[in-house]
């Protein structure tokens, strides 16, 4: 837009050139690390160790992937990860949306109280250890429930959704109420369908968060019964014992001798990252609106 107000000087053109070069370098720095992992995951492990692998796999193989799925139990991890994303996102979307709805009903007497009670949680929490002890005393350790129940309501999502709901005409829900429609039905059938843009933004945040979280898995599921993909990757990454166990098994198998920890790690990284990249175009369409809604009060 504003370029139209500016004369095209020589120094301006030189600046433009270097600016574009800078942006290309930036894009490269952002993308190449992923590409590097991708080619290592597709290249034969022992060949990668020779070095000089920059832009294209030299000895193409899918061994690392098939090995991780066969021996590393990645299929199970992927299933639990997807289940966590779906259950976690659907429940938090429904419940945080419902909370946002009841706090936007203007004549509801508990509205302010509830809102304040939730907003406090944005600024202060009991901390890591008391939460851990609480989860323990509720017998939520080593369960799938621990992935979605503690995140069922979110004050932050409530803020985002309710700032959107405030702009809906009140007459919509009032007329339904006069017709004898129940509150839950007003929320599900009238309000929620009008809030699709903000729900989409919140769904993106929540889904990415659930997909990427690993600390609570490590904390509350130390037995490994409900391990998600992220935790599998962490084990390949940091758990030397786990990795050498995997490698020992692998040495006994014919044809798998050329795998290395680096190639296994790269394959696992790609399996964790690819869903994010696949959904990325869809995601970025919605989250942009989300981060600016209700961020600043004037």
């Amino acid at each position: 837009m504003r370029a139209t107000y500016v004369k095209n000087t020589t120094s301006g053109r030189i600046f433009d050139f270097f600016n574009v070069v800078f942006m290309v370098v930036l894009a490269f720095v952002m993308l190449y690390p992923f590409w590097n992992q991708l080619i290592i995951s597709f290249n034969q492990g022992s060949d990668t160790m020779k070095g000089g692998l920059y832009f294209w796999p030299r000895e193409f193989t899918l061994d690392s992937y098939s090995y991780m799925f066969d021996k590393g139990n990645l299929g199970k991890g992927a299933f639990i990860s997807v289940l966590r994303v779906v259950v976690g996102t659907v429940t938090t979307l429904f419940c945080s949306g419902l909370l946002a709805y009841i706090t936007t009903v203007r004549w509801f007497s508990g509205r302010r109280f509830t809102r304040v009670l939730f907003l406090i949680t944005l600024y202060f929490s009991g901390g890591l250890i008391p939460t851990y002890l609480l989860i323990n005393s509720l017998h939520l350790m080593e369960t799938f429930t621990v992935y979605w129940l503690p995140g069922l309501f979110s004050a932050y999502y409530m803020l985002l959704i309710s700032s959107y709901m405030y702009n809906l005409p009140e007459a919509l829900s009032e007329s339904a109420r006069i017709d004898g429609c129940g509150e839950l039905r007003i929320y599900v059938q009238i309000i929620a369908p009008l809030c699709v843009p903000v729900f989409a933004a919140v769904a993106v945040f929540s889904a990415v968060n659930h997909w990427n979280s690993w600390f609570d898995v490590m904390l509350y599921n130390s037995s490994g019964k409900w391990d998600t993909l992220q935790v599998y990757l962490r084990k390949v990454l940091l758990d030397v014992e786990q990795l050498s166990k995997l490698m020992d098994e692998q040495r006994q198998m014919e044809g798998m001798r050329k795998l290395t920890p680096a190639s296994i790690r790269a394959a696992t990284t790609m399996i964790v990252t690819i869903p994010i990249i696949l959904f990325y175009p869809f995601m970025q369409k919605y989250f942009m609106g989300g981060i600016t809604i209700g961020a600043v009060k004037e």
Partner: peptide
């Protein structure tokens, strides 16, 4: 949008 585990793995590699 990727987790810190992915970033750590990339850094290690």
């Amino acid at each position: 949008f990727v987790s810190w585990i992915v970033v750590a793995s990339i850094i290690f590699t």
